[in-house]
Each structure stands twice: as C-alpha cells, then as structure tokens.
C-alpha cells in the first residue's frame, strides 16, 4: 500500500538494518564476555578450575546478582537506588537477631517482605512527587532504614544463623542431592522470574516504557507511581534475600554488611550495558555484568592484586567500557 512512502523517505531501511545489526552484535558481545573472561581466568589462574573454585565464584555472583535486581530495574526507569545496601543490612541483622530470639524462619521472611514493600513504597512514592531525584530519596530512605533497624535491635546485631542458610552459600552445599549451592539455585530462579517479568508481563513492558518516555507511558495507560513502587519494592525484596544469604557467610551480622553492594550493583548494571538514561537493557545483561565483574575480581586476586588495586582496576575498567559504549550525546545533538 505504501510504495510511495518507501521511495520518498531517504533510505531508512538500510540505516535501521545496520543499527539493528550493531545492536544485536553488542548484546552478543555482552553475553559472550563472561565466557571470554572465564577462559582468561582458566589460562591465567588454573586453580579456579576446581569445583570449589567455580562454585565459590558462582555463589559470590549469586549474592551480587540477586542484590542487583533492584538496581537494574531502578536504572531502567531512569532512576537509581541507593537504599539497597541498607536493605541488605536490615535483612541481615533482623534475620540473625530475630532467629536468635526464637522467631521461625517463615515469620522472619514475612516480616522482611512487609518491610521491603514499605521501603519500595517510600522510594516509589517520594520519587514520584514533585519530581524528586531518586538519588536523594533513596539516600534518605537508606538512612532511615539503617537507623530504624539499629534502634529496633538496640544495637545488638549479633545472633544466630539458621544452618541451612550457611549451607546455602557453601561452595560444597547441595540441593536435594544435586551438588549445587542453594544460593545458586535461588539466583537461577530469581533470574528466570525477573527476566520473564521483564519480557512477558504488562508491568514488565511498562517498566521499559516508563524509562523510555514518561509522558508517552502515561498516555499508554501505564501508572508511573505504581510502576516505581513495584520496581523499588521488587528491588528491596531481592536485596533482603541477598542480606539473608550474606548471613550465611559470616557468623556476625552488621547493618553495614551491604555497603560494598552500593557500587558493585551499579557496576554490574553498567558493565552489562544497561543505559543510565533508562528504557533499555535488562536483567539478562546484568547477569553478564555480574559474572564479568566477579570473574574480573577473581582474576585480579589470582594475580595477587590486593583489594585496593582491585578497586582501582575496576574503576578504570568501568571508564573504558563506558567510553566505548555509554557516552552521552553532545549538546548540539540534542537540538
């Protein structure tokens, strides 16, 4: 019906095809990166090849990966979530202290779910009114959460950890006789659900729409505040799960245990190639980002690079990656 349209518009087809190919190529590279990194790791430090080595790498990735769900979605709606570390710390402390007081694990999980949703509502509602910047909103919420937890347990953050949690993060752990740590299984389940929600649900597509164009999303029947609450709540629930798993690593609990996850979740999202401008990317990319950053750290440890220089190298790696694929447009191109 529209041959005339094809003739008159200056070759959109070839331009878009090449753009599309480039897009497909770059996402292929993102997913190949963890494999490539793993090969480098194998060659450079063959001792990671042991089952324990691989499993501990995967368990570390699992905790980071679960914690990064919220950051991924927050970035996808062009926001950011600085309350993830506080939420991790909250779950970590409440689990151990309440478990020591005789609460059952189920009761604690229900409590954490409720609190996570409250955190998500605070972030989502506050960042929807007056166009407040999610950076400051989540920073404030984080402070309230940490303070609230410390007050509620009166500063006594120690306690007991259920044995199965310790087992879940042990590289030698197993689930139903299958020799896989439960943390890894949980991550796989979370990943499947998150990716399915992104791709196969109404709210998942609306997350992309909101990040892409708020006005258009509203006109296309998405409810911005509801979506923000959903995104930040889901993120808080996953952060709580990560906090629970972290309790298995260390005997003692701490509200600060999540501190490292502030920047590492952002790093994983950025390395995965989800744009901070919103509306693109996805959790599948973050999985790749999580694996790459964890492998990168393992590699540096293998080369006996100390934690300080690891940090430096990570920073430089982020800069290089973003220079390659994440630069902003010049002001002239926004006219």
């Amino acid at each position: 019906m529209s041959t005339s349209a094809i003739e008159q518009t200056p070759t959109p087809t070839s331009a878009a095809t090449s753009r599309r190919r480039r897009g497909a190529l770059s996402s292929l590279l993102v997913y190949l990166a963890p494999l490539a990194m793993f090969l480098v790791l194998m060659v450079a430090t063959p001792d990671v090849l042991s089952r324990t080595g691989i499993m501990s790498l995967l368990v570390l990735s699992a905790v980071l990966g679960i914690a990064a769900v919220g950051q991924t979605w927050a970035v996808m709606i062009a926001g950011i979530d600085l309350s993830i570390p506080a939420t991790i710390g909250m779950a970590n402390v409440l689990l151990t202290t309440l478990y020591a007081k005789g609460w059952s694990f189920g009761e604690i999980v229900v409590l954490l779910l409720v609190l996570s949703i409250l955190i998500g509502m605070a972030n989502g509602v506050l960042s929807s009114i007056f166009g407040l910047h999610p950076l400051v909103v989540s920073l404030g919420v984080a402070s309230v959460v940490t303070g609230g937890v410390l007050i509620s347990v009166d500063g006594n953050t120690g306690g007991d950890v259920p044995g199965f949690i310790t087992n879940a993060v042990s590289p030698r752990g197993s689930v139903l006789g299958v020799p896989l740590p439960a943390a890894l299984v949980v991550w796989v389940l979370v990943a499947v659900v998150v990716v399915l929600v992104e791709r196969r649900t109404v709210i998942g597509r609306q997350i992309f729409a909101l990040g892409s164009n708020v006005t258009a999303a509203r006109l296309a029947l998405a409810r911005p505040m509801l979506i923000r609450v959903f995104v930040y709540s889901a993120g808080a629930i996953c952060a709580s799960a990560a906090g629970v798993l972290l309790a298995g690593f260390s005997g003692g609990a701490s509200v600060d245990i999540g501190a490292a996850y502030l920047f590492s979740t952002i790093t994983a999202v950025v390395v995965g190639g989800t744009s901070l401008l919103g509306g693109a990317g996805g959790y599948a990319r973050t999985i790749a980002g999580v694996l790459v950053t964890t492998e990168f750290t393992t590699l540096l440890i293998g080369f006996s690079v100390g934690p300080n220089m690891q940090q430096v190298m990570l920073g430089i790696a982020i800069l290089v990656l973003i220079t390659v694929y994440g630069r902003d447009r010049h002001v002239a191109h926004r006219l």
Partner: peptide, 27 residues
C-alpha cells in the same frame, strides 16, 4: 509524547493494549 525511542515496533504499537492481551498481567 508518543514514541518509546528505545523500544521496538511491537512495544510501541501494543503498549496501550497490553492490558487487553494479557491474563493476570501475563502477556
């Protein structure tokens, strides 16, 4: 006000009717 520039034709075309083409929120 209209286009989702980061998304494909399908999302752009169907975003407003995703609600109708879903069951319990699942597309």
């Amino acid at each position: 006000e209209g286009l989702f520039r980061t998304l494909d034709v399908r999302d752009n075309l169907a975003m407003a009717t995703y609600g109708e083409h879903s069951r319990l929120g699942v597309l």
